[in-house]
Design a binder for these strands. Structure first.
Lengths: 340, 340
DNA sequence: TGGTAAAGTTCAAACGTTTGAGCAAATATA
DNA sequence: TATATTTGCTCAAACGTTTGAACTTTACCA
């Protein structure tokens, strides 16, 4: 394995100094076009690959951005990440993905690892378990840009991109009531996570708006996995009075619910209507197709990346809070559309 | 934001040189225990965080390992990654995950990005699209350790960890025949990928072993998504003579098949039995539960990490090919278990 | 007691790049 | 023609750490 060619080799070959080479490669205005051309040619000729570590050390910029994702096996998260990546790659940033697996411990270790790798910024969505934010404070203190998305609208005072969860529940409930439902159950996420709390609040307020009383036993908090969706639905079917609709805060939970309903021979949507959340691809592939809420995965990814870029490119950035809240969109499918 | 404390600050505070501090922190044998203790104490006191970039630059080791994964939204891949991560973290390595999204282009760009980040090694599984391996040759030429897992048993002559795909088909076919099936269809992956080719070969040889003729129209190549699973199953049901079993090379495709079968009112497993591949969590949660092949995700992750560690820690590593092939395990569930 | 070895540390260079300051030549300005 | 400005480059230090070599001091052995 031969020694890698450095900026020095180019300099020697052209009888100029390394600094001139460096400036030429970066299109410094004080370098003549002739030299620039010669340098770039020689660089290609020698197969020069910039040493990222050296430039990062010297300039204090690693051009790496860390992403923390609760789980990778969700379409929502993986498409957000994909879009962040795309947007940042364009600007010369590379992306390090780490997963917390919904674990607080793991999330802390991820942050540690990212800081150690000297990332230029961190983009994160909180694990389900996470309830305190000291570890995120550490990032802020170090002056490293931090942006949260989806799970993370919180009081730590950092930039955030996500959908309007409160409003999205209203859309769902309005739709179900329009379909003639009156006892709407809610398989919710844990209320200590802001987004799920907001959905619960939205659910309650929407019912009240329609003068429908709130029934405690119809609101069940869970981790929204398929398994939990099944369990909570079984619980609902043990109630003396069944719901006539189920609104699940996640598609996997909705799928679990659907399975249980079908196993009990319950007709969806006529006996019990069903709405999920996230627009996972499978929702439109199974039978009946599941109504769900679309969170603009692509847009969220792009926006969060742009927010980061805005922040690092603006030399006089003021620590002002930027929250970007998108409107969610209800996708009505068979599981909640009753024939008139 | 105050300046970060460096090794120099510790040196000054203790009236010794930076080199002594560096050696103390690394437990160099020629540094007295007294000094080591003092240094470590002072380091903690000043909140010293080693500058990873500097040490990487100087020592030529970044302590980063790149992982390329075809898709993150698969339980198999995300649990392999999780286990690699765990194993490597223990040894002080951090992990960069990049996804190719099954795209050859993206895979190339990922490799570029990883090389640029100066990773100490690359662990990869090939994208579905990938048929040539020049980009992997580049890694080899640079002398950077490369290990492939699952998709990647190939002719590039690199270490590999995966299951015995040929053998796994035998187990599946043997089981289906034992259940009384005679016309076994195979929804296969693309045969240009070695693992899927091996499964097809195994499927054919297993049938021949039982003196069952091979029917071309029962072998359908696909990308193994849920959608493709549905399409291919529809195709199978258009045949003049239906199969009495479907062996899908992926669980999502199997799920698609199951949906179509159920929509046609076909009884599973009595009319058509079904076996998937990968042991995705949902296979044991839906009704009927789907028989599938377990690939030892955890073991693969651990082994691939250990292989990497062995290689970098062994100073006189000979470029000898190491292939680790695990036996797959069939998990029989309702979808293929006929009542006697 | 002289000589050798071991222990504990310092010195200085190196990793590859970036960057402010400086300098000479070329060009513009008056 | 003298002076100011711009252009194009060189110089040298710096980023924070690691590391081979050198240098003292202490311990050991005969």
């Amino acid at each position: 394995m031969k020694r890698k060619t450095t900026i020095k080799d180019i300099a020697n070959a052209l009888q100029i100094t390394p600094s001139a080479v460096s400036r030429a490669l970066h299109n410094h205005p004080r370098i003549s076009d002739k030299t620039k051309k010669a340098v770039k040619l020689k660089a290609k000729e020698l197969g020069y690959q910039p040493n990222h570590l050296a430039s990062a050390l010297r300039s204090g910029k690693s051009n790496l951005v860390g992403i923390i994702v609760p789980r990778t096996n969700s379409y929502f998260f993986s498409s957000v990440v994909e879009n962040i990546e795309e947007e940042l790659n364009k600007e010369g940033y590379n992306v390090i993905i780490t997963q917390s697996n919904e674990s607080y411990q793991k999330e802390c270790r991820n942050i540690e690892a990212l800081l150690q790798t000297q990332v230029d910024g961190i983009i994160a969505s909180l694990a389900n378990e996470t309830v305190d934010f000291e570890h995120y404070e550490r990032i802020k203190q170090k002056g490293i840009p931090l942006i949260l998305y989806d799970r993370g609208e919180n009081d730590i005072g950092v930039d955030y991109v996500g959908i309007d969860d409160y409003q999205s529940s209203h859309i769902v409930v309005d739709h179900l009531i329009e379909q003639g439902c009156e006892r709407i159950a809610h398989i919710a996420g844990f209320s200590h996570t802001r987004i799920y709390k907001n959905r619960i609040r939205g659910y309650i307020d929407a019912l009240l708006k329609h003068n429908i009383p709130i029934v405690e036993s119809l609101i069940l908090e869970s981790n929204l996995t398929l398994e939990e969706g099944r369990k909570k639905t079984e619980e609902l079917l043990k109630l003396p009075k069944w719901p006539d609709a189920i609104f699940a805060s996640g598609d996997y939970a909705a799928l679990g619910a659907l399975q249980v309903l079908q196993e009990h021979g319950i007709k969806v949507p006529d006996e019990i209507a069903l709405v999920g959340f996230s627009n996972e691809p499978f929702t439109k592939l199974i039978s009946p197709t599941i109504s769900t809420v679309h969170q603009h995965n692509h847009k969220i990814g792009k926006l969060v990346a742009q927010q980061f870029l805005k922040r690092v490119n603006d030399p006089n950035w003021k620590p002002v809070l930027h929250k970007i809240i998108l409107d969610a969109e209800l996708i009505v499918r068979e599981s909640s559309l009753r024939k008139k």
